[in-house]
Design a protein around this nucleic acid. Structure first.
Lengths: 226, 226
DNA sequence: GGCACCAGGATTGTCGACAATTACCAGGAG
DNA sequence: CTCCTGGTAATTGTCGACAATCCTGGTGCC
């Protein structure tokens, strides 16, 4: 249950080939180097990585369990292509889960978590003033925020579901749609208020604010798609 | 993304061996025939089912993605054994997701869904009066209710997450702890009120009631564990 | 007695090959 | 021209074997 945002930047030495294939392919799919909706050729990819089809299939199954691939028996695997509907569904689930994460983070907060959250926020503030609010919604800023909040919930299942199962799809969509949100300054204020509520230990308010925050983000995307 | 509660009782004819192994093993793990925490022997199980280790490994990976198995590289797979902490985490996530499912079900309800829900409820009422309230919380009654609600949300990601990824773990715990809740009659009333809120199209109330319902169920388990 | 070390055995990771199924394309009938 | 049909090629599902790694039990040393 290894979350994506762990501290150690070193790679585990005991890593299976299938796992390395999985990580590589996940990156290529998320960043769009392998197009959404395109068919996956097992023999082709196996040749490309000088790996056996068995190891590659293991990686593909892992990708399927993340919801990045769709496999059908005797037919093969395709990169998922959910469309507008799937994106909105994703945000509805995020609203529920990250709302709960905020509530739990407020209840279970430690001084250590709070210090990290405050530090992150001030780092974002500098970055935001530098870049005049257009880059805030890129992975460094926004994902960092949501990751940290979710980690602070201390609920392993919640962390796994959001960070491993859902966020890669979100990132895939952002690459696909070329997100550069105009909500940067407002989003930063919302983040700030959420952290204040967590500091105050007000789980109910923290949940409410996070849900509103994600709903606003969803509506922003909804408008953009018309 | 095939949910568990689909209509057709017939088995798909084009089903891979790995998938059959997966279904069989899932059943045995959920029902406790393969003990929680026990180690999985790939060669042993492969011999038992007259299958190759490759096909079996595919089934094991699928089980891992459901959170029923934990695999470590070069070591092997063990049946998950989360303990009290994991069970409570499970209920926190359910509270968030099923609450959202209720909200969506109330917003997107169709006359067809409502008819099915009402019919299910009256069926449960008869059954409840027959069995004097001790069997209601068994899979037939309770799971049926939660399944139907989630289906009615029409959110495929939500349906998949709850029905495929979380419910099997819940069922596993129930078998493990031998659940026969004393909350039967009260739970039935709560179910009834939730459906009323959905009928009325009041998503906010439906969500609130469902969250309360699951929290009560969680506290009931919490008490039982002390 | 306790701890480090070292085979032996078993298990896992990886590979290439075969069988079964599907997709593709050409040809003919309506 | 469209639709159906048949055959071929490619892809997927399944299998057994080999190499790398880990667990177990026993031995020797402190």
């Amino acid at each position: 249950m290894s979350a994506i945002g762990e501290r150690s930047p070193v790679q585990e030495p005991h890593q299976s080939l299938a796992e390395r294939l999985f990580l590589t392919l996940r990156g290529e799919i998320v960043e769009g180097r392998i197009a959404a909706g395109s068919k996956i050729s097992e023999p082709g990819l196996a040749r490309r990585f000088n790996a056996s089809r068995g190891s590659l299939r293991e990686a593909l199954m892992h990708l399927e369990s993340l919801g990045l691939l769709e496999r059908r028996v005797n037919v093969g695997a395709r990169v998922v292509d959910l469309g507008e509907r799937g994106l909105l569904e994703l945000y509805e689930v995020r609203e529920a889960l990250e709302g709960m994460a905020c509530r739990l983070a407020a209840q279970q907060r430690t001084e250590e978590d709070l210090a990290e959250l405050r530090q992150m926020l001030s780092r974002h503030e500098q970055q935001e003033e530098l870049q005049a609010g257009k880059a805030y919604f890129q992975p460094e800023g926004d994902f960092d925020f949501h990751f940290r909040i979710v980690q602070a919930s201390k609920n392993a299942l919640l962390i796994d579901t959001l960070c491993n199962r859902l966020y890669y799809r979100v990132r895939m969509y952002r690459y696909q749609l070329g997100m550069a949100s105009p909500r940067a300054r407002r989003a930063f204020r919302e983040h700030s208020h959420i952290i204040e509520a967590i500091e105050a230990g007000d789980g109910e308010l923290a949940e409410l604010l996070m849900r509103r925050h994600i709903r606003a983000s969803r509506q922003n995307i909804e408008n953009k798609l018309r």
